[in-house]
Design a protein around this nucleic acid. Structure first.
Lengths: 340, 340
DNA sequence: TGAACTCTGACTAACGTACCTCATTTTTTG
DNA sequence: CAAAAAATGAGGTACGTTAGTCAGAGTTCA
């Protein structure tokens, strides 16, 4: 009933404890024949290293750094909270997670924080990438020191970072397009699009995916050029209101960034509200969904992203098992009936 | 930098190691004043128990039993695989998971397996509940011995089991109803429903939720009485084909059980295919979604259910942290653009 | 005031692995 | 064949906690 230990392995393989240790931890040189004996014993006994004992013995603590954009962006604040919550109990297992905020959309600031990391002070870093030359260079320096680098939500070129945790925004946009396309039925007309800023990679990707689907499968619908609201509710309201007044055949609305409050405010003036799809599940969007003000919400689950990021760092800096499926973040669709 | 230990706590609280141990592990009696001193020290030091050392010392292994229905049901086989995969690496942390199959829909067999558990041989059990009197009694006996009992996918009355891991099938049915309602647009007519068996609680719940939504928000659509196909493809095909011939205003199809292959086969004969919503994401349903044969898939993620069940048992039998959100299984919607 | 309590401290042996040193054996090489 | 090098063994300490024993101090109560 009780599991076998390295002592059992040594006995069965007829070698010393030291040799077992050398094989299991790849130290010094061991003759192939001896190594084989040990591995054979491991197999027959079904030996599994006791990770509690191992961790205790190598008294190593792991330290990870998370850099998240500061500001009121509710998705980011949510993400921050999830990271902190998930990391807290891990402290008991020797894993420390430090969360720091940096100014958003500011490659220089991000770069400075990355460079400020003392080599050896952290075992891995995760951050929401701003794709600028200076950030790329900073990441190259980190990777040069063999430090695991995880990008969160917004990516860098794949060869630079070790891993990306987030959704594919092209497909998120496509999903929105298909939902709106179906919801609009036979109606022919235009779709108003409200974005944060098209210079943001994820927003641009969503818009592009959205247009793809309309072109492919709903040619009677036309996506209008996006209103860039810079995640600001007033700007969104003003922009959308103006658009709705000047255009009379708007049959659907897609809001792919933040600032949804403004979008909804603009809709209140309408007597006949067309189908609306927005991104990110917040307290507000949830309420609007239940009230029927909007029709669908698309989101990436911040809790899953937080967990995936921590686990990915963990599995890269230890030899921990890594469930690929567990660490992929899906594009979720919420209607008023399947809210979590 | 290095974490504080019970030695530090003892020093700061100005008590002995034994006393710290007594407070931390609730042994014997400790005077309130002394307890307070220790707790104060824990707080100021921010002491967290090193779980590696703790587990090592109490050399306890945890054993959990999973009972899953046997047979070809692909969802169940999938679930089984996920449980095994998730549990494998946990062996290194002293956690053993034993998976056993039992005949499906057989309260007697399930009950026998539950009763066969030696007291003390397992620290918790998870199973797909068949809600029969004998099973209820068996569960009562287990709970009487203070054993954590988790129901998976299909529930028992809440006061019997410790926890349920699965989705709310009423809301899953509602979600299907809303999707079909929106997809049908202005069309007026009937919805064909294919189920496994209405005596199965989850299927009945889905149908009921489905009807709710149609009645509330899509009164121009009428859900037909379900065809009970007993998860058999031929039966589903025959039933649905007959229905489609005898009824000319079927404007949508909802398949809420297994046997989707039959449903699709029946559709192939039609020149004008109405919107189709089915449950469970399989290799097949995935292909049909991409091909446009069906329009949406609703599912519960077996991987999440597996993980949640194991984690829930874990957190109940140790004092491990328990993230409620992490352990809730959502009702997922898949269109062809947001497939995982 | 003494007996019967309750608390507390000091000490120890595990738990299974990592990692170190030093000695000894075996193998390789010139 | 001897010397050098490589491989292995023996044995120890440390990690932080659990869980015990036993002795002694303090408190309560008759």
């Amino acid at each position: 009933m009780t599991r076998s230990t390295i002592h059992d392995v040594a006995r069965v393989a007829n070698v010393s404890l030291s040799t077992v240790d050398r094989v299991l931890n790849g130290r010094n040189c061991v003759r192939p024949a001896t190594r084989e004996k040990v591995e054979e014993a491991v197999r027959t006994l079904g030996y599994v290293r006791n990770s509690a004992a191992a961790n205790l013995s190598r008294k190593r603590r792991l330290r990870f750094l998370f850099l998240l954009p500061s500001g009121a962006n509710s998705f980011m604040r949510n993400l921050e909270e999830e990271v902190v919550c998930y990391a807290r109990p891990l402290a008991a297992d020797g894993i420390d997670v430090v969360v720091q905020v940096v100014p958003p959309f500011d490659g220089g600031a991000l770069c400075r924080e990355l460079d400020a990391m003392q080599p050896g002070s952290f075992d891995g870093v995760a951050f929401v990438a701003v794709d600028s030359p200076e950030v790329r260079d900073a990441v190259k320096r980190l990777r040069h020191g063999n430090l695991p680098v995880v990008t969160l939500v917004s990516d860098l070129p794949a060869e630079l970072r070790t891993h990306f945790i987030g959704i594919d925004n092209i497909w998120a946009g496509r999903t929105a397009g298909r939902l709106l396309g179906r919801f609009c039925g036979a109606a022919r007309g235009k779709i108003a699009v409200v974005a944060g800023a098209m210079m943001m990679q994820d927003h641009a990707a969503r818009y592009s995916g959205f247009r793809q689907v309309l072109a492919e499968d709903f040619p009677h619908l036309e996506a209008l050029p996006p209103i860039e609201a810079l995640d600001d509710a007033e700007r969104a309201e003003a922009g959308l209101s103006a658009l709705l007044q000047s255009t009379d055949d708007v049959v659907g609305i897609y809001s792919l960034g933040a600032g949804n409050r403004g979008v909804v405010a603009a809709l209140r003036k309408l007597e006949d509200v067309p189908p609306v799809v927005v991104h990110e599940l917040t307290e507000h969007s949830r309420r609007w969904l239940l009230a029927g003000t909007i029709d669908a919400v698309i989101r990436q689950d911040p809790a899953r992203e937080a967990r995936s990021a921590v686990r990915t760092l963990l599995s890269m800096s230890q030899g921990k098992p890594f469930h690929k499926e567990e660490n992929c973040v899906g594009i979720e669709i919420f209607l008023r009936d399947n809210l979590p």
